[in-house]
């Protein structure tokens, strides 16, 4: 009972967003006017729109080049970040999980400490490093630091370490070198860990706000997470549709990847 009530509290915002996005522009302006400073009285948010219409969606999809640009900006930043995290992180995690070498402990501890640093700590210096490399105000200022994030490495180490040693030893006996063992044993068996990192990374970077705010001066490069707040009564209907549209990619990733999301969270909590 308690659980159902709490669960309803979680689903309510989602429902309101979707139903809100079907309100016509007029209804949206009337309902939300009071909170946007254009009308007196109290705001209302109908559970179902009085006059449901696809109007805002049509307007958003056919007549909002700014929305599209930012939607693609988001995609163009998030997918490379996540791909980079896997390309850089998976081999590194494999090394940390499966090899013995001097400095292993040190590198791992360093990665964990860097993972815990809030973004704001290195904001200025990151800016200066990126500026030296000529990358500020380009998408690479978001992609490269994102790809170098150490959290996915931390996560994947836990999954790679759980692969039974017998399998890698068998591969070595069959004459596989370290690279072949990684590609043919590590990657397939560690795939759930990689997918966990992908799902968590996607949800994280779809929400990226601090980095674009600090590193991208040119608003034409801004991702969707910075587009939505500029809302007025006139565009309330369209903003609602945009809010709902921004929700779709992470929601799809969530629904298809929930298993990996849970596995990833659980792995992040394991003790060493």
């Amino acid at each position: 009972m308690v659980l159902s009530a709490l669960a309803a509290l979680v689903w309510a915002p989602l429902w309101l967003l979707l139903s809100g996005s079907l309100m016509g522009a007029e209804e949206a302006a009337r309902s939300l006017g009071p909170v946007l400073g254009t009308a007196e009285g109290a705001a209302v948010w109908p559970l179902l729109p009085l006059y449901p219409t696809l109007g805002p969606w049509v307007e958003l999809l056919l007549d909002s080049p700014a929305f599209f640009a930012m939607f693609w900006n988001s995609c163009g930043q998030v997918f490379p970040v996540v791909a980079g995290q896997v390309l850089l992180g998976a081999p590194a995690a494999w090394a940390l999980a499966r090899f013995r070498f001097r400095g292993r402990r040190l590198v791992y501890t360093l990665y964990v400490l860097l993972m815990l640093l809030p973004f704001q700590v290195t904001m200025v210096s990151s800016y200066l490093v990126l500026d030296t490399l000529g990358l500020t105000n380009t998408v690479w200022a978001i992609i490269l630091p994102g790809a170098a994030s150490t959290f996915p490495v931390f996560l994947m180490v836990r999954f790679f370490a759980a692969i039974p040693a017998a399998l890698t030893e068998a591969a070595a006996l069959d004459g596989a070198g370290p690279l072949q063992t990684f590609l043919h044993v590590g990657l397939p068996l560690g795939a759930p860990g990689i997918l966990s990192a992908v799902v968590l990374g996607f949800l994280e970077y779809w929400n990226a706000l601090e980095q674009p705010l600090a590193f991208l001066k040119d608003k034409a490069l801004w991702p969707l997470s910075l587009y939505l707040p500029a809302v007025t009564a006139e565009n309330a209907g369209r903003t609602l549709a945009a809010s709902a549209a921004a929700l779709i990619p992470p929601l799809l990733i969530f629904l298809f990847g929930q298993k990996y999301l849970e596995a990833g969270i659980a792995a992040s909590g394991l003790k060493d």
């Binding site: 669960a7 979680v10 689903w11 309101l16 967003l17 949800l203 929400n207 969707l224 997470s225 999301l261």
Partner: peptide, 20 residues
């Protein structure tokens, strides 16, 4: 699923809702 769902809802999407 219900309790994990908010992780998937982007910050930007809830701004207008929170205001309302």
């Amino acid at each position: 699923t219900s309790f994990l769902l908010p992780m998937a809802i982007p910050v930007a999407s809830i701004v207008l809702l929170w205001k309302a």
